[in-house]
Design a protein around this nucleic acid. Structure first.
Length: 345
RNA sequence: UCCUCAGUAGCUCAAUGGUAGAGCAUUCGGCUGUUAACCGAAGGGUUGUAGGUUCGAGUCCUACCUGAGGAG
């Protein structure tokens, strides 16, 4: 899922996303959209899909990650989170119920339950406490969601989030408790918060045998291109990451032959396309030398072209993965992906 | 011809007579449920030239060079 925090994937138009990249689902963020433009406005505009002119799927994150990443501005209680807006300092409160209501006001296709994402490293006690709180919040979110469904507002899935920091047994305990909610899918959160990568994968493995295989499992906030096959190998169906879009704007481009840091002097007069094997608009039309020029000039077109390419690359990786799985050759694919990664280094 | 002002990093400019710095540019590094078109590091200097004063000169003095402006 490309990340469109503020109801836009920075640098891309709906036409880019839909017609060129064929994106099927986007992620948007409850925290950001509640602050601006606010759930009332979105509801009055006919929901998030209509507002942003996107009729494909939208998953909205609950704001749990912002509790973590904006921790200087927040206070966490059992009831919910009290925080100050990073925009103007206004006080706001998120509860499991209010974030479900906000996401229903958005008209999201997949709602995320409010969770607490602890920083790394965390003590076992802190991890245990935040895990317990995340479970309690997930139950309340599920109840709120269930009440809406009972009232006729159906068609919106709710995913609770597995936490437990880097303690496999806590993650298993958390997943087991969340199973009782019998939701349409399950997310694995609390990853990529500074821990070494093998540990992230280990945490995904911890709940692989617990989370149901017939429902989507969503690893939140990951990963690098070469990490995607590893997550899938551990049972992950869905991922989102700011990396393709953010790194694109900052000049790191992902290609089938590895990373291209476009500002490097060696691309100054390089007439080749960014990625010979890519069919995206950027690669079909422009040279590395031109892209580098746009980047160095700070031209806005660079962000658009670079983001288009990086999102294409991520989606291509996922398409390759799907193809390999469907043709029964995933282990083979994984092996070759790993050796290509080793070659690139 | 004379007068005034100015010459400091690639560029634009700082620096009481007391360790020559900044921004931009350059070359790199980083970015993982976006407070990020962002953050960080490094390289880069005979302070126009030659003398002088001084314990010590980018800074004060003299001459010259270059540029801008003014007078005639």
């Amino acid at each position: 899922m490309p990340v469109g925090t503020q109801a836009t994937v920075k640098g891309l138009s709906g036409r880019d996303l839909e017609e060129d990249l064929n994106v099927r689902i986007l992620l948007a963020n409850t925290y950001h959209l509640c602050l601006r433009p606010g759930p009332e406005l979105l509801r009055s505009m006919g929901g998030l899909h209509k507002f942003m002119a996107w009729d494909r799927a939208i998953l909205t994150d609950s704001g749990g990650f912002q509790v973590f990443s904006l921790s200087g501005l927040t206070k966490i209680t059992d009831d919910g989170v009290i925080f100050r807006s990073h925009l103007n300092g206004d006080l706001h409160t998120f509860t499991p119920e209010s974030t479900v209501d906000a996401q229903l006001a958005f008209g999201s296709d997949i709602l995320m339950a409010l969770d607490e994402c602890v920083p790394y490293p965390a003590t076992r006690e802190a991890a245990q406490a935040s895990m317990a709180r995340t479970i309690a919040w997930a139950r309340r979110a599920a109840a709120q969601h269930g009440a809406a469904v009972a009232a006729g507002d159906s068609g919106h899935a709710l995913f609770p989030i597995v936490q437990g920091s880097m303690f496999p047994d806590l993650r298993r305990e958390c997943a087991g408790a969340l199973l009782e909610l019998d939701t349409d899918g399950y997310a694995i959160g609390g990853l990529s918060v500074g821990e070494p990568r093998p540990l992230s994968l280990e945490m995904v493995e911890a709940t692989e045998g617990i989370l149901p295989r017939d429902r989507p499992r969503y690893a939140m906030g990951v990963g690098k291109p070469e990490e995607l096959p590893e997550y899938v190998a551990r049972g992950v169906d869905m991922m989102d990451c700011v990396m393709p879009s953010r790194n694109a704007r900052n000049g790191t481009l992902f290609t089938s032959a590895g990373r291209v840091v476009i500002k490097h002097a060696r691309y100054r007069d390089d007439p080749r396309p960014l990625d010979e094997n890519c069919r995206c608009y950027t690669c079909r039309r422009y040279s590395r030398a031109y892209l580098r020029h746009l980047y160095l000039c700070g031209e806005i077109l660079f962000a658009a072209l670079a983001t288009r390419h990086n999102v294409q690359r991520y989606l291509d990786i996922m398409r390759e993965i799907r193809h390999a799985i469907l043709s029964g050759k995933y282990l083979e694919y994984l092996g070759s992906a790993r050796s290509e990664c080793a070659d690139a280094e």
